[in-house]
Design a binder for these strands. Sequence first.
DNA 1: GGAATGACAAATATTGAAATCTGTCATCGG
DNA 2: CCGATGACAGATTTCAATATTTGTCATTCC
Lengths: 196, 196
Amino acid sequence: MAATETLTAERILEATEEVLRRYGPAKATVVDVARALGVSHGSVYRHFRTKAALREAVTERWLERNVTELRPYAEGPGPAAERLTGWLEHLFALKRQKAGGDPELMATFQVLIGENSAVVDRHVEHLVAQIAAVLADGVRDGVFAAGDHGVTATARAVFDATDRFHDPAHAADWAAPGIEDDFRAVVSLVTRGLRA
Amino acid sequence: MAATETLTAERILEATEEVLRRYGPAKATVVDVARALGVSHGSVYRHFRTKAALREAVTERWLERNVTELRPYAEGPGPAAERLTGWLEHLFALKRQKAGGDPELMATFQVLIGENSAVVDRHVEHLVAQIAAVLADGVRDGVFAAGDHGVTATARAVFDATDRFHDPAHAADWAAPGIEDDFRAVVSLVTRGLRA
DNA sequence: GGAATGACAAATATTGAAATCTGTCATCGG
DNA sequence: CCGATGACAGATTTCAATATTTGTCATTCC
């Protein structure tokens, strides 16, 4: 039906996301994706060497959106301390919203995450770099101390310390009552630890 | 063969642990446990109402050992700051050792953990209480600040912030190079955050 | 010429019948 | 009398036959 438009990697990725959303990671097949696009599955293989590569590309796209959403905090103006808490709160809110709003989609996402740890590692690098940018501003302004092992190591420590509030592995906890308090307590502990 | 000894809950738990170790969580059956003890499976049901209850008891025993191992840091003498880092390091070392030394056993353990979240929650309470005891000593001695929301909330924040280094969900990461540095960076950040 | 197709082999997943396991309980034996 | 037994029904798991999917490639079509 959509055979009029040319088949691009982008269109295949959109269809794949839709198929994953509808059937889940276990049942979504390349044939399903091709059917959704009204083409033969052979055509999909022209754009993606394997099913794994296709799923990896979807995962990458998905994660990339988070980085984009958080960029304002990393680059935006304002005091570094507020930008850091804003960044952490926004990340947690994003994740919680996704996990709470559509648990099945979150489960699908978690499977993809598990399949593509290399992609995830690269994504974590991006996020840590965003934290590091905020920390660097804070150090420059004298509100944060440069950590014992450099800003990047400290940024990673901030990311690791808040792991429970952004790692999909903990998504099941995010609906628990009191999780907000736990989050605030950790953020408070971490920001105290950063103070100059 | 061991039919001479009386059948106790304790002996059943030992046999169950052995069976779990040998066959893994998916294959370990109540019949296997009974066979290992040389009794009928009906006898096992005299001591544990269900297979789930049996597994829960094993999980509880397993976790209890950790609490015992860490008690010296919680109660022992010495400066609170050193006891805290010692406690955190010992916990991480314990977990890493188990995960690295016998990955299959760790996987088994992780399945049991997942099945028995109520038991795990109680166990976490115990661990947080141990941290809280150290923090309370530190506050008394003037080396730690009482957190904004009380010692227990702060203790939980310490536990949460170091989650990546004790939660079995992250066991796969514990063999990565640089994990030691990551751990030290988080502990450093946290202890800074606690200082009076 | 270059993108799209669909037949095909090998790998993977599904299915349903057979086997095993869980949990109960009437009976046994010390 | 009281713990242990094993036969049993219903639930779950296993296994092997069957069907689907993945990935390739010679051929088709624009």
